[in-house]
Design a protein around this nucleic acid. Structure first.
Lengths: 232, 232
DNA sequence: CGAATGATGTTGGAATTCCAACAAACGAAA
DNA sequence: TTTCGTTTGTTGGAATTCCAACATCATTCG
């Protein structure tokens, strides 16, 4: 990655969690060590193809792309959308997958930065352990989020998913009153249910005194039934 | 962790993915550097309490435990069961969580090993980058699994979940014929659906020629409809 | 202010799932 | 072989969700 390119994408690079804690002066050297190379793709081109060797992880520098998986008959499903600054394919590289199980396609003319994980793994440079720690933190946080959503989608009814979700948000905010970062449609997507059914369920729960809502603001009752704490 | 304890739990320690690639001779030193301490818990005791500082990760050496989360009213739900050799709480430590969001309770008299992540983070020793790489690989693999299951639970119908699951298994095995590692009840739990409804759906799909089954052996048709590949 | 737009709530019927109970097939042990 | 226990399949009704269409409310912008 040459100096001109680095300068051009300095804002994106500066914001990369991957490089957090690495002094700006060292970044060029670090990137060089990672075999960093940029590549430009026209819309519709593949930054990565399922079946490719799982060695290079990527960063979108410009434009946009989406991660997609094709089933064994070739039907596509989109797993994620990528914007500048987003890291992709890192999970498979870090997991030591034999091959990429997904493809990444440019949804707009786009520039991607590819990084080789191998040199970091050997860990001979001081910056390496910082990189490893950054990757580890990012992966672990993603892990927490995935786990959290999974615990919601395991529930079978809209009400259970809602109660679990709201309970977590209440705990996180430390109060019975809190705001969620979603509108109704986004919340429905997050809980993987129908929006109108979600609204209806919210109304029912409101009628039962299980919660109060005002747009994205929620309030849970101190105790939904007049019971004792710690009851069965 | 003293020599006697290390000897006693040698079989468990030898199998720890966390310590993979670290010569046996160095392990004692590594564990010492991690501030390793063992602790014995009677059944019902808490190895870890929600709200605790997220600093120590744990390994079950003996007995058993379960990870549980309490909602804001104190209702419990079990997130995982732990057997000897299992690592716990590492995600929250690695993610830098401000506090543990879960508790861990002994389901039987149990011995746990606690490790401090801080010294590894500083990464001043050669073994540290190996530990980081091991943790990274483990976390990334868990990530892949979580992602995979999440992609199934996002589907709204039993049939869609089944098709997505079977498609992945077919791809993984590289053949239209393959065996799954679950019986029907386990598969239903994995897909988070009712077992009998799952069986019924399998029957329907069998009748439609979408698959053949024999216990855990499955066979998908080369093309479910006589269409062309790459059709819309 | 009024219109347009978008978010949220409501409704009814179709489709799907759950649940419980039972039947059939299979495998292991007597 | 017979018996027992487990796994898998089947069924019907209750409960839930989906889906599409529409009503209501808030916000923005002309």
């Amino acid at each position: 990655m040459d100096a001109k390119t680095m300068e051009r994408y300095a804002p994106v690079l500066a914001g990369l969690p991957l490089l957090a804690g690495i002094p700006e002066a060292e970044r060029a050297g670090v990137l060089r060590r990672l075999g960093a190379r940029t590549q430009r793709f026209p819309k519709g081109a593949f930054l990565l193809l399922a079946g490719d060797e799982a060695r290079w992880m990527g960063v979108v520098l410009e434009g946009g792309a989406q991660v997609l998986r094709e089933d064994y008959l070739g039907r596509r499903s989109i797993l994620a959308s990528l914007a500048p600054g987003d890291l992709f394919a890192e999970t498979f590289v870090l997991a030591g997958a034999p091959a990429m199980p997904v493809s990444v396609e440019a949804t707009a003319p786009c520039v991607a930065l590819f990084l080789d994980y191998m040199p970091v793994l050997r860990g001979t440079q001081p910056a390496d352990s910082r990189l490893l720690a950054n990757l580890l933190g990012m992966t672990a946080r993603k892990n927490m989020h995935l786990n959290e959503r999974l615990s919601l989608l395991e529930k079978r009814t809209i009400r259970e998913r809602l109660q679990a979700y709201l309970s977590i948000q209440a705990q996180r905010s430390g109060s019975r009153r809190f705001a969620i970062p979603f509108d109704r449609q986004q919340l429905a997507d997050y809980l993987s249910v129908d929006r109108s059914a979600l609204s209806a369920e919210l109304s029912k729960m409101r009628a039962e005194g299980l919660l109060e809502t005002d747009r994205s603001a929620f309030c849970l009752p101190e105790a939904p039934r007049g019971g004792f704490s710690g009851g069965s």
